[in-house]
Design a protein around this nucleic acid. Sequence first.
DNA 1: TTGTATGCGTTATCAC
DNA 2: GTGATAACGCATACAA
Lengths: 348, 348
Amino acid sequence: MKNKKRTTIYDIAEKLNIAASSVSRALNNSNHVNDATKKLILKTAAELNYKRNILASNLRKGKSKTIGIVVPFINQNFFSNVIAGIEEASYQKGYNLIICQSNELQSKEIKCINTLINQHVDCIVISVSVDGSDYSHLQNVIDNGIELIQFDRVADELETLKVINDNEQASLEAVSHMIEQGYKRIALLEGPQNLSIFRQRKTGYLNALKKYNLPIIDELIIENAWTKELGANATRRLLNLPEPPDAIFASTSDFSALGVLEVASAMGIKVPSELGICGYSNEAFTEITSPSITTIDQFSVYMGKTVANLYFQEMENKEEMDVIPKIISIKPKLIVRSSTLKNSNLKK
Amino acid sequence: MKNKKRTTIYDIAEKLNIAASSVSRALNNSNHVNDATKKLILKTAAELNYKRNILASNLRKGKSKTIGIVVPFINQNFFSNVIAGIEEASYQKGYNLIICQSNELQSKEIKCINTLINQHVDCIVISVSVDGSDYSHLQNVIDNGIELIQFDRVADELETLKVINDNEQASLEAVSHMIEQGYKRIALLEGPQNLSIFRQRKTGYLNALKKYNLPIIDELIIENAWTKELGANATRRLLNLPEPPDAIFASTSDFSALGVLEVASAMGIKVPSELGICGYSNEAFTEITSPSITTIDQFSVYMGKTVANLYFQEMENKEEMDVIPKIISIKPKLIVRSSTLKNSNLKK
DNA sequence: TTGTATGCGTTATCAC
DNA sequence: GTGATAACGCATACAA
């Protein structure tokens, strides 16, 4: 029972004995068309089950009304929430999304970018993968006349639109909170320092120590501990030190914080009394671990909306001039949970 | 530094003083073109940074090479894994994905479907939302000449391609396992019975009781407990019964199983010794709760690949004849974890 | 093997 | 306000 052929504006025009261009105008709600005929056209369009061929429309208009998204993993809450935010804002504007996963590999990321360029998307939104520091594929996006917007994990050196968090401030608050809870030897699990977000988080950590006159202890700062496994390994090393830390700030992600928690549990170390733990991103699971994990909410859905709206706004304002690099910073929020509540009766 | 105009096949043709059609042929790797000129064309195409305009190509070919996906939530592991599977299989074939979320609302689902029809996608893959039992919007997909494939949550009455799990068998195994662990009063949290997958899971549960000569106790079968909140509510009711259950099979999802676990923990009831819990879907978090939750793995990534390949295969075989409804059933696997290990030294 | 001509379904630019 | 027509970029039937 399939209609092989879909109805086109010509079918409508033929049936009504008018020109296709009039049909097109009516369908686009132009005001250069008689109200009565417009009504009639809309009516018969509905009767004939007409659906505009977006392919043809976009070809003619020279844009695809599509936004490409590249994230490391689609199934991490932070990213899926950002995507949900972008989707919501784009939906109303009639834009579609093509979503790609880089799997944290720059090689895959380059493939994704090429696919999206081939698709002639109007805009590419990306949170870069951790490996690699050559961004010529992103420059390529710009050279192909495609708007590029970076969020969260951004390549500083590229002058593009950016939506980021105030990572430094958030880290400062998180570590300050831990210090105020009575933790004195706070370790830092840091992410790859080629990415500015991880540098900023480290700076926040250092600033907090300074603020409270605590010493910076090099052996408590662990490089590249940004996955669950690396976080677990780091924790094993830390907890076996002669003077182990009494808290760990997994500045890279909640996943590494989970690694910390699992190792601590396995070693019989009590959280939060013997070890405080703080993660980053407010992944859904941080609420259901035992104990629940203190973390930092990045307002991911809002972040996504901001990205999309930034693009739409930029499109409206842009005449012939080049894009002015613009950075929007969102202030994240510390979510205090059981894993850092050493000195409090707020414990769940 | 933007190239306003992208290079087209005409640009290449002009530069090489040949016809655009030859360029097109070369770019499509046709063998009706001289090898030498083909080489030359490919070379200059690369030099000029040529990217085929997929819009035009697809318009010409009458298909969009795009698959639309509608799932309740993109950020549930089961669905994001299925999507990842579809993506992997589609990527190689040069197909793109447009992903929509129904948020479990049929109203939103209808909107998604309409968007996808408007986009002229070649195929729509859907796992239907729980509310509503009118599937005219899906019939509409078929009537528009778009291939429809259902997976997991399928509308039985629609004769489409389907990829499902053997839910009945999986439930039978899960409940059998619980009985063998010594649980005697096993409650069932069931999903909306308008969906066949939930009916099948119930049947599996009933069959297991029958197999072990256990009585069917009506008050232990709770309708519509398919979210975390509903699961929690149901658990509160169940555990306050004069004769409470000693195990709960949350047949609908791991989320409702999580609700069960949280209520049990809050009430001070020990899992698995006093209460066994089994979920469904093998969401990532089931591994990190305390205790970890026994569940059923649906091989979600494989399921996605199967869906995509089913489509590609169907496309190849189809001449002018209509689609023959085909159902592929995947056997899921019971993942035994701590939450049901009452009688065992396998406890983690 | 290569070139010419046409159409995919729209929208934009003219005339009228 | 309406209609004819060109053009978006590509792929293909046909001719050469």
